[in-house]
């Protein structure tokens, strides 16, 4: 279980804004993260916290400006061999835009099946397409349909089937259920859970809904303003947050959570500008624990328990309170 398959080191990603690109928005700022085989690691944070950017970098869809990402023995960042590229797949948030509106489900799946390097005989492609649809709870009846004839949940199932066609090891799920209705959400999450059990998939699960995170993930990485605030096993993070920001997230969550937050941190302020972030700890302007040191020094991620890392100098105080 604890074999590391994706290793990100000091990842930095900047986006240039403005006419001359003089403004730089640092979406991800020096992130270290490891992904273990067969686990689900959730990236959690507000919009603009860099979780989507980080997710894309971790599966090699975006190139970091600095730092390295490796998947097993391959470095991500350049062109990958086809069979390696195939093992890192994605499922996106917006099911309406995930499927090419001009292609039938048959064509969408056939393209993926052929891209995976599977046999190109028409019967075999058809067989495989049907078995993929059945895996995600659809049937051969969906093959002739165009995306606009499918419901949101069905579209997302087709998107998952397309990812599975590549026989991936890692699937980046970028808010896969945020755009869906409540009941459909539960069904898709359950499907993802079942597929993981059956195929030993590794998920990088991006979400801002903590109840989804609780349901699906083994580990959580809390992101704030392009940096990781805290990483650890889901259970522990939810029960005993060590970073004041995590506590604030848990306090302000509207979803039903397993633990009543022991520590309540009233949400104040807004997430900072990524173009000119505050000095020191980026959370200090909103943090009830902030001291002089927080305003001056950027806290490093440090270990506070088995598998638990936190970027806060007051973590012990937060845990005790």
């Amino acid at each position: 279980m604890s074999e590391v398959i994706i290793r990100g080191r000091h990842i930095v990603k900047e986006f240039r804004l403005g006419l001359t690109g003089r403004l730089r928005l640092r979406a991800v700022d020096g992130v270290d993260l490891e992904v273990m085989r067969g686990e689900t690691v959730a990236l959690v944070g507000e919009s603009g916290s860099g979780k989507t950017t980080l997710g894309r970098i971790l599966v090699g869809l975006l190139r970091p400006d600095r730092g390295t990402v490796t998947y097993r023995e391959w470095g991500l960042g350049g062109r990958l061999p086809r069979h390696v590229r195939a093992r890192l797949q994605v499922v996106f948030q917006n099911p309406d835009a995930s499927l090419n509106p001009r292609m039938q489900v048959m064509d969408i799946l056939a393209e993926a099946i052929r891209a995976a390097g599977d046999t190109a005989s028409r019967e075999e492609v058809l067989d495989r397409a049907i078995s993929l649809l059945e895996m995600v709870g659809l049937s051969a009846d969906h093959l002739p349909k165009y995306p606009h004839e499918l419901s949101g949940g069905e579209k997302q199932r087709v998107a998952i089937a397309r990812a599975l066609a590549m026989r991936p090891e890692v699937v980046l799920a970028d808010e896969p259920v945020s755009a869906l209705d409540a009941i459909v959400r539960a069904q898709i999450l359950e499907l993802m859970y079942r597929l993981q059990e059956d195929w030993g998939l590794t998920y990088i699960f991006i979400s801002h809904d903590l109840s989804h995170v609780w349901y699906l993930s083994d580990r959580v990485a809390i992101m704030y303003a392009g940096q990781i605030a805290e990483v650890g096993p889901t259970e522990e993070i939810f029960r005993e947050p060590a970073h004041p920001y995590t506590a604030m997230l848990l306090t302000s969550s509207t979803s039903v959570l397993p633990y009543k937050p022991r520590l309540t941190v009233r949400p104040v302020g807004e997430s900072p500008s990524l173009i000119s972030p505050p000095p020191g700890c980026r959370f200090h302007p909103r943090c009830p624990y902030a001291t002089e040191q927080c305003r001056a020094e950027r806290p490093e991620l440090r270990q506070i328990g088995p598998g638990r890392l936190v970027a806060c100098i007051h973590a012990e105080k937060v845990l005790r309170s």
């Binding site: 590229r85 994605v90 996106f92 835009a97 995930s98 090419n100 393209e111 891209a115 397309r162």
Partner: peptide
Amino acid sequence: NEPYVEAGRAMGLSGPYILFRHILPN
């Protein structure tokens, strides 16, 4: 930047293929 184009890139489809199969028809 449409997700289906990005999904195509994740599948390792080539640039010209994506241009002709996914972008041009749309």
